[in-house]
Computed example of a mutant assay.
Amino acid sequence: MTGFVLACASHSEAILAANLGRSPLLSHVPLHVEANAPSAAIAYNRALDATTAPVVVFAHHDVYLPPGWEALLATRLAELPPDWGVFGSFGIGLDEAHIGPVWSSSLGMIVGRVPMAPVPVQAFDELLIVLNRASGLRFDEALPGWHMYGTDIAQSARVAGFGAYAGALPCIHNDRYHEALGTDFDEAYRFMRRKWAEALPIRTPITKISRSGLHLKRDRWRNRQSAEFREGMAVGTDHPVETLAARCGWSRLGP
């Protein structure tokens, strides 16, 4: 596939080299890296301004794209309605279903159901988001930090009259286990609750944004209660990403 660029915000050359940097498509697809940006939105808008490709794939630096991924991407994009603005490997459907599939090292499993066609979503996991440059969509630089921008861009697309979809676009997310959400997540949650007050509730991959904010408090309590169990599920990030892809049956992807 031609006509797309890979963009990444990274604070660690080592993580980038061990994961996204090992993706075979980088032999013929350009990678634009924004290092040490103050927020995800600023990093991604800088990447938009620095590139010209009609399709921009924003991926975390701990994501690996197996062989054949770009051909599968071309197939998935061809399946999208003409109104598409953003597409993702993992999203939350309008019915709150988890749409995938992707591998998560922090969860030790493949997550998300495999849809037969693109599914409209209300939010994305930020691990991988594909943006149609012709939509004119950009990330909201008022959103602080590194959380919730997948939900924000999905909502922004829908309000602007563009589609936000997720589909079967497998990848490896070699993410480390997190025991609890930080205060930076709270800050992003409060921002989103204010910005999208008229659209609430909105289900994100982590929690539900509600007017009361009680869902976040409930999910924090659940995380504390399940911390030991969740840590036991995680597989760690020291496995070669090619091995993880092979275990998932994704050594070679195809349409």
Rank of each mutant, 00 (worst) to 15 (best):
Val57Ser: 03
Glu242Met: 05
Asn45Cys: 06
Val33His: 03
Trp250Asn: 09
Ala14Leu: 13
Gly232Pro: 06
Arg133Tyr: 09
Phe58Val: 01
Cys171Val: 12
Arg133Val: 09
Leu107Val: 05
Ser106Glu: 13
Gly161Met: 06
Ser12Leu: 01
Pro170Ser: 10
Leu73Thr: 11
Ala40Gln: 09
Gly93Glu: 04
Ser226Pro: 00
Ala227Val: 04
Gly167Tyr: 07
Ala9Pro: 08
Val29Ala: 07
Leu128Arg: 12
Leu80Gly: 04
Phe4Glu: 02
Thr243Ile: 09
Trp250Leu: 07
Val114Pro: 01
Asp152Cys: 10
Leu94Tyr: 08
Ser135Leu: 00
Ser10Leu: 01
Leu16His: 14
Ala160Tyr: 02
Phe90Cys: 11
Ala199Tyr: 09
Ala227Glu: 03
Ala199Glu: 13
Pro115Ile: 05
Ser23Met: 06
Tyr177Ala: 03
Thr2Asp: 15
Phe124Pro: 09
Ser156Ala: 14
Ser212Asp: 14
Pro67Ile: 02
Leu77Arg: 13
Ala78Leu: 06
Asn19Ala: 06
Glu187Cys: 11
Tyr189Cys: 00
Glu13Tyr: 00
Ala234Cys: 03
Arg252Thr: 13
Arg211Ile: 08
Glu198Cys: 05
Met148Leu: 15
Asp175Cys: 09
Phe90Gly: 00
Val121Glu: 02
Ala157Tyr: 04
His61Trp: 12
Val121Phe: 06
Phe185Gln: 00
Phe87Trp: 10
Ser226Ala: 11
Glu79Asp: 14
Ala47Cys: 15
Val29Asn: 02
Leu77Ala: 08
Ser106Ile: 00
Leu65His: 09
Tyr149His: 15
Leu6Thr: 14
Lys208Phe: 08
Pro201Gln: 12
Ala97Asp: 14
Ala180Trp: 02
Ala199Gln: 15
Pro205Arg: 00
Gly167Met: 07
Gly68Lys: 10
Arg190Gly: 10
Pro115Cys: 02
Val57Phe: 04
Ile42Tyr: 04
Leu169Ser: 13
Gly93Trp: 07
Thr183Asp: 10
Leu94Glu: 14
Val102Ala: 07
Thr183Glu: 11
Thr237His: 00
Ala78Cys: 10
Pro170Phe: 09
Gly21Trp: 09
Arg247Cys: 04
Val102Ser: 06
Ala134Leu: 06
